[in-house]
């Protein structure tokens, strides 16, 4: 059984509300289905407005889906009460893009990491403090830094604090929403290595939401490409990069700048009018799905 099963997920947002205009609806996520297998890194890629971030938040019900199903270990999350959902969330954590705005500036780093343990009433006193120190070490931070405030840390260190907090409750799924895109290039690789290392050590499953296709290629086992709310292609990472089938995937891949001034530039421009959004995914090769 897959760890996560998403079926026909839809999220609509009302737009253009005002005194005179009413009720225009935008489908940010439009009939999205995929599975995440235990232990894999599933990549969700797409550009701004593609619905990838909303999809990630719907999985945790940080955003309430309009319709569809999200199953976690077979349990339908959308049918759970708020209290039940809180318990399930121990197993599903999220790491945000911006380590500057996602950490409370008035809390010390140790308290930020400890907070989930307090909320879920796990451990107490010295045992809890030992656990916080352990979590600091797990993400490569000196536990002596626990008494400092977020502004005293670099961007990379802040992202480590966010990760320690996410791991406090020993989740099995971590949703990483652009976890390194606000970091300096020279620091990104450190955090990516840490993510890969933690996955091995803690048997984590990742939903990796990103726009950096080079990075996605490096760490994901399978990738779904989103375009205007829909998944237009889903396959093993190598298949997506070596044999992209959907015109949007092809255009997206051709736009990645190549780190070689001599590389031929073969930019493909997507003819948006030629994309039939109603076309369903079909299996074009074993495990390779495309809406063509």
């Amino acid at each position: 059984m897959p760890l996560v099963e998403v079926r026909h997920l839809v999220k609509e947002f009302a737009s253009g509300q005002g005194l005179l205009r009413r009720g225009a609806v935008v489908r940010a996520v439009d009939d999205v289905s995929f599975d995440i297998e235990e232990g894999e890194t599933f990549g969700l890629v797409g550009e701004s407005g593609s619905g990838k971030t909303t999809t990630g938040r719907c999985l945790l019900r940080l955003v309430e889906p309009t319709s569809g199903e999200v199953r976690f270990r077979g349990r339908d999350l959308l049918a759970l009460s708020a209290a039940e959902m809180r318990r399930v969330r121990r197993e599903m954590q999220i790491v945000f893009q911006d380590p500057y705005s996602s950490l409370n500036p008035r809390m010390r780093a140790g308290a930020i990491v400890e907070e989930p343990l307090v909320i879920h009433r796990m451990g107490a006193g010295p045992a809890r403090r030992r656990r916080v120190a352990e979590l600091f070490e797990l993400v490569g931070l000196d536990p002596a830094l626990a008494s400092r405030y977020p502004h005293e840390f670099s961007g990379g260190q802040r992202q480590r604090i966010g990760l320690a907090r996410a791991l406090a409750l020993e989740p099995s799924l971590v949703i990483a929403d652009e976890p390194v895109s606000s970091l300096d290039v020279s620091v990104q690789a450190q955090v990516v290595n840490l993510l890969m290392d933690l996955q091995q050590r803690l048997q984590l499953t990742y939903l990796f939401i990103a726009h950096d296709l080079r990075l996605v290629r490096h760490i994901c086992s399978r990738v779904a490409v989103m375009y205007r709310g829909r998944i237009v292609e889903l396959a093993a990472t190598a298949a997506i990069f070596d044999a992209p089938q959907h015109p949007y995937t092809r255009a997206l891949l051709s736009a990645i700048p190549v780190l070689d001034p001599d590389a031929p530039r073969a930019r493909l421009v997507l003819d948006e009018t030629a994309v039939d959004r109603s076309r369903p995914l079909r299996e074009v090769a074993a495990g390779h799905w495309a809406a063509i």
Partner: peptide, 11 residues
């Protein structure tokens, strides 16, 4: 893919 990146240590 899958191998550790050659990160620059420190900041």
């Amino acid at each position: 893919p899958g191998t550790p990146l050659r990160a620059i240590r420190g900041a």
